[in-house]
């Protein structure tokens, strides 16, 4: 089943065999690391709330890496010693994502049909952290799967095969959702909600954000500070023509452009102003904030 290989420089993994190799950079803002570790020990599913680009995904990666240490060495089928890290399966949910997309389906084969496990099934089997990003986007039938997996049962029923899989030891379901831009219609149901502990993510405070920007983009500290300041100011415009405040991710992009020698005002224009909105009036306003902060 393992289809690890390398095609034209890109490394290909089977989903359950992917794990985070290098320590991702993550700057803890509060006690979220400790909370997550505890939740993992207790196998309590975790809900990450927060706006886009605030570091939810990075946090999960970071935690997967941390939880994978000390690395277990297990022998593979070929007898070689390979490193075992905490596998992390990430599924980005979209509005057409159905239960079968997660569980698996029959595929056609030369001689008939063949069952293929979906990402959730694989995670349950290998005991990975399964991270369903933007979970409210998915169709409602996915909740049927989530519920038995997230209480004491830890079961995944596979209707089409007539099977029930008991989750492997290491399995944990982590979901994320952004309360900001989803409309009231697409709120998370309470029966779902109340199966998770919720960790709230927000944009980091100015100094911390500056530190993150500096680290991630390689720009100088002063620029990083200015970018963080800009982020703070632009976020004040939320709900005024802007659905979301500027994410740390975008600030990092701007920082990278600046670090490579693009003039700061221009970098902010392409990475922040134009990326955020199409409304020319709001663009102009953001631009004025940019020109006030950057020379």
């Amino acid at each position: 089943m393992a289809e690890n290989g390398s095609v034209q420089g890109a490394t290909i993994y089977a989903v359950e065999e992917y794990s985070v190799h290098e320590e991702p950079y993550y700057l803890p803002i509060g006690d979220e690391v400790q909370l997550f570790e505890t939740a993992y020990r207790q196998r309590i599913p975790v809900l990450l709330k927060g706006p886009t680009g605030a570091g939810k995904t990075r946090f999960v990666e970071y935690m997967a890496y941390r939880l994978g240490r000390p690395m277990m060495k297990i022998s593979s089928r070929t007898g070689e010693e390979v490193e075992h890290r905490m596998p992390l399966i990430t599924v980005a949910c979209h509005e057409d994502l159905t239960a079968s997309d997660l569980v698996g389906r029959y595929l056609l084969d030369t001689d008939g049909t063949r069952w293929v496990d979906g990402p959730l099934t694989r995670a349950v089997k290998v005991g990975a952290i399964c991270y369903l990003d933007e979970v409210v986007e998915a169709r409602k039938d996915t909740t049927v799967l989530i519920h038995p997996l997230t209480d004491y049962r830890r079961l995944l029923p596979i209707e089409k095969l007539g099977q029930v899989i008991e989750a492997a030891e290491g399995f944990l379901l982590v979901i994320s959702y952004n309360p900001g831009y989803q409309s009231a219609l697409k709120d998370l149901k309470h029966s779902t909600r109340q199966r998770f502990i919720a960790i709230e993510f927000n944009y980091p405070p100015r100094e911390a954000e500056a530190q993150i920007i500096a680290h991630e983009s390689g720009c100088d500290e002063r620029t990083a500070m200015d970018l963080a300041r800009l982020g703070e100011k632009v976020r004040n415009l939320k709900e005024h023509g802007l659905g979301e405040g500027v994410s740390t991710r975008l600030l990092v992009y701007a920082g990278r452009l600046i670090a490579e020698g693009i003039p700061p005002r221009r970098a902010c224009q392409v990475a922040i102003t134009w990326a955020l909105t199409d409304d020319s009036e709001v663009q102009r306003s953001i631009e004025e904030v940019v020109t006030s902060i950057f020379e």
Partner: peptide
Amino acid sequence: GEVLRLYCKALTGR
């Protein structure tokens, strides 16, 4: 006015 309003809103957060 509108540009400046958003600008001031951004600056002050109010």
